[in-house]
Simulated scan of single mutants.
Amino acid sequence: MTTTIARHDLSAGPDTERLADGLDEDLIEEIDDLETTAVLIDSAFSSARLSLSARCVADPRASAIETWESTVNALQLGSALFAVTGVQDGSVECRINRKLRTIPATGPMSTADAGTWLSAFWLAVICRDQDRMTQLSEIPLERLRSPEGSYDEYIYRWVDTLQSWWLRRPDLADKLIATIEASDPAVARIAPQDLLQAVLYPPINLFYHYVRNDRDGFAPALADALKLHKTYWTLNEDRAKDIDGSIALGPLAIACLAYDAEFPLDIESDYLPKHLLQRTWIGEFPT
Rank of each mutant, 00 (worst) to 15 (best):
A114R: 05
P273R: 03
A12C: 05
G90D: 03
E181D: 15
A188Y: 08
D26E: 14
Q76P: 01
C56P: 10
R215N: 01
W117D: 09
R101F: 10
E25T: 11
A64L: 12
R239F: 04
W158N: 07
I155N: 07
E148Y: 15
A248Y: 09
D244N: 10
L176V: 04
A54V: 03
G22L: 09
L257H: 11
E262G: 01
H229C: 05
G245D: 02
M109H: 09
A255D: 08
F82N: 06
R169G: 15
A258Q: 06
A6D: 09
I28S: 02
A105V: 07
R95W: 12
R49N: 15
E153L: 13
S137L: 11
D9L: 07
T179W: 05
L195N: 05
K175L: 09
R279Y: 12
G283R: 04
T106W: 00
A188S: 15
A12M: 12
G86C: 12
S183F: 08
S70T: 10
I190Q: 14
V72L: 14
I126F: 04
R7F: 08
S11Q: 14
L100V: 15
V39M: 03
L144V: 05
D238V: 12
E181W: 07
H8I: 06
A20Q: 09
I204G: 12
T161C: 12
I177G: 06
L222K: 04
P140T: 11
L252F: 08
Q193R: 15
Y232F: 15
T37A: 01
E35D: 04
D216Q: 13
V211F: 06
D174I: 02
A54E: 02
T67M: 10
T161Q: 08
N97I: 04
L34I: 02
K241G: 02
A48L: 00
I139P: 03
A191V: 15
L252S: 11
Y151A: 03
D42L: 00
R101H: 09
I41R: 00
V159R: 05
R215D: 01
H209V: 05
E66Y: 06
E25Y: 10
Y208V: 09
T116K: 10
P104F: 02
V125S: 02
L34Y: 00
Y201F: 13
R18F: 11
R7M: 09
V125G: 03
S146I: 05
